[in-house]
């Protein structure tokens, strides 16, 4: 658990969990060193392995995409740094993830924030109360309307990204290029309307 623990690369560390996808990234392009797709069940085990290997949780980011809801866990190390993004996709109808707050205690607040913004339930969170939004507030502000949702590949599988894919499960199609990479975005119209203001910035 101490930061001096010998460095084991995440591809070796996470291999027993059989990630659906694992890539060696180019930090100069994305700020990431590694990225992986895991199933929700494998998350607590991954969190334990990472903590034992001296990794700490940086943040948990929700993401609303066409394929469903996603949570991105960013991990980093104090010694021999290099960011690891663990992505977990959920069914939009029942967005539930196991809490990792009993392993990385700092996750408690990150999970509560993600629950506020996206309505994702983290089972086992020790204090599942709203963190930043008021009690009793209905709705989740970062969920997108159906027309605004982009496919995951449009965000993460862009040309020239040059990741080295180390593992890819058969039937893993999440990062295959989507047929229409650019969906209609309602935010565009608003941005165009205020473009004059942006030019004065």
């Amino acid at each position: 658990m101490t930061p001096e623990t010998a460095y084991v690369t995440p591809d070796v560390l996470l291999a027993p969990l059989d990630p659906a996808y694992l890539a060696d990234e180019t930090p100069a392009r994305t700020g990431l060193r590694w990225s992986a797709f895991l199933s929700a069940d494998a998350l607590p085990r991954a969190a334990t392995l990472l903590l034992q290997a001296g990794w700490h949780l940086e943040d948990i980011c929700g993401l609303d995409v066409r394929e469903g809801l996603m949570a991105v866990y960013h991990f980093d190390r104090m010694t021999s740094p290099g960011r690891l993004a663990i992505r977990v996709l959920m069914d939009r109808a029942a967005p539930v993830l196991p809490s990792i707050a009993d392993i990385h205690q700092g996750a408690e607040w990150h999970e509560r924030e993600t629950a506020d913004f996206y309505g994702i339930a983290f089972t086992g969170n020790p204090n599942p109360a709203p963190l930043l939004l008021p009690e009793g507030m209905q709705g989740h502000p970062l969920l997108k309307g159906e027309a605004a949702r982009a496919p995951l590949a449009a965000l993460l599988a862009v040309p020239g990204r040059e990741d080295t894919v180390l593992r890819k499960a058969e039937g893993f199609t999440l990062l295959d290029p989507a047929e229409d990479a650019k969906p209609a975005k309602p935010a565009k119209a608003r941005a165009a309307a205020t473009e004059e203001g942006a030019d004065n910035a």
């Binding site: 700020g31 862009v158 935010a187 941005a191």
Partner: peptide, 26 residues
């Protein structure tokens, strides 16, 4: 389109900004 994570050292520690873009204006 694409994603990028950029971290800097603030007075209180590690500040990180993660952007995911689909190539839209915002």
């Amino acid at each position: 389109a694409g994603e990028s994570y950029f971290a800097v050292e603030g007075a209180r520690g590690k500040i990180g900004v993660w952007i995911a873009s689909d190539g839209g204006k915002t």
